[in-house]
Simulated assay, not measured.
Amino acid sequence: MAKLKIVLILLAVYIAYQYYDSFDPEEVRGKSVVITGASTGIGEQLAYHYSQLGAKVLITARREHVLQKVVAKCKELGAQDAHYIPLDMGKLEDTKRLIDAAKTKLGGIDHLILNHITNNYMALWKGDMEKLQRVMDINFRAYVSLATYATPMLNESNGRIAVVSSFAGKVATPFAALYSASKFALDGFFSALRQEFVMQNMDISVTLCIIGSIDTPNALEYSKTVYSGDLFYTTSADTASRIMKGATLREREVYFPWTMTRPTVMVRDLLPSVLEWMIKSSMKEDAVEKGRQ
């Protein structure tokens, strides 16, 4: 009984710690922030959160006309400086262009927020190797390239890297094998890179962000196609706020929403067969047929 009480106390302390907010907004003011995938969703909201706190931002995505609107709003919200550059993260030369632009326009990088993805993945795996290459190029290789090019500037600023991953990067997700693979790869690479920075006496933090279901059109379409019943969704704005705070506080990993993501990952480690059964049971009867389409 005494041991159970100790376990429960430790669990309560752990949960309370997850909800304790020690974030100081002044730590963001004046920082140079680069955000990818910033035309919509989490990336757009990250740009607004950083701008409201007086950061300098450089954002990128492919659609220039949307980026123009986001930058205009960033300036309205109080960004000390705001720039955009339309780029395709599927092209390695564009990843270098972004980091070069950060040096020219911002004078360096304090926060590198890696957020972009390609969403073309909602199907059963049918052996499409070209699609696999495309997904890995955008969702993984571009992240590695950006972090690599940015390392010298981040080393000078004792900067931060935030890697926006997913629940699917910790728990393999049916009908999203390519997406899951790219997110698992991020975990492996950046968890190793974090250790290598320490070994080289580089004070660069790496925050891996494990994000649950967001109320974006792509996420809603995926759940509508695959799952029966209603899932819990959080907003892009709340998610972006948590990512910004996690990066600023140099957290190792961010789970958001914590109650949806962290316990499920723990079940994966302890009872993987049970978790797979739960996932299968929650799916629509015709999910496989739709996945073939």
Results as ranks from 00 to 15, higher is better:
176 A>E: 07
147 A>E: 04
167 F>A: 05
158 N>C: 06
199 M>L: 12
195 Q>E: 08
202 M>Q: 08
98 L>G: 04
93 E>P: 00
157 S>H: 01
112 L>E: 00
187 D>H: 12
153 M>G: 01
171 V>F: 03
196 E>M: 08
171 V>D: 00
125 W>G: 01
129 M>C: 05
169 G>H: 05
194 R>D: 14
159 G>K: 03
106 L>F: 08
140 F>H: 14
171 V>T: 02
114 L>Y: 11
122 M>L: 06
142 A>Q: 00
136 M>R: 04
103 K>M: 08
99 I>V: 14
129 M>W: 10
133 Q>H: 13
118 T>R: 05
132 L>P: 00
185 A>C: 01
149 Y>F: 15
95 T>N: 15
189 F>G: 12
107 G>S: 11
143 Y>R: 05
109 I>Q: 09
114 L>D: 07
158 N>E: 09
204 I>Q: 15
140 F>Q: 10
155 N>E: 15
195 Q>K: 11
151 T>K: 06
96 K>W: 13
118 T>M: 04
105 K>D: 07
103 K>A: 12
158 N>T: 06
100 D>M: 09
135 V>I: 12
162 A>S: 10
121 Y>M: 06
148 T>C: 02
94 D>M: 04
104 T>Y: 12
139 N>C: 05
120 N>V: 03
152 P>A: 03
176 A>M: 14
112 L>I: 03
161 I>H: 09
128 D>P: 10
183 K>V: 06
128 D>F: 08
125 W>E: 04
154 L>E: 00
211 I>V: 07
96 K>G: 11
156 E>T: 11
136 M>Q: 05
182 S>K: 12
164 V>N: 03
109 I>H: 15
204 I>M: 14
206 V>T: 03
212 G>M: 09
101 A>I: 07
118 T>N: 10
158 N>D: 15
125 W>F: 01
172 A>Y: 11
170 K>G: 09
106 L>M: 10
169 G>R: 06
177 A>W: 04
170 K>V: 10
115 N>P: 02
139 N>E: 12
92 L>G: 12
155 N>V: 09
104 T>Q: 13
189 F>Q: 08
207 T>F: 12
113 I>F: 08
143 Y>K: 08
153 M>I: 11
115 N>W: 11
151 T>Y: 00
173 T>C: 11
106 L>H: 12
110 D>T: 00
125 W>V: 01
192 A>H: 08
120 N>M: 01
106 L>T: 05
150 A>E: 01
134 R>P: 01
98 L>E: 03
105 K>S: 14
200 Q>L: 12
115 N>T: 14
93 E>W: 02
132 L>G: 01
197 F>Q: 11
120 N>F: 05
201 N>R: 09
166 S>P: 00
198 V>P: 00
161 I>Q: 01
175 F>L: 11
172 A>F: 07
146 L>Q: 04
171 V>H: 07
155 N>D: 09
146 L>G: 04
133 Q>L: 12
177 A>L: 05
181 A>E: 04
191 S>T: 09
192 A>R: 02
176 A>L: 06
95 T>Y: 06
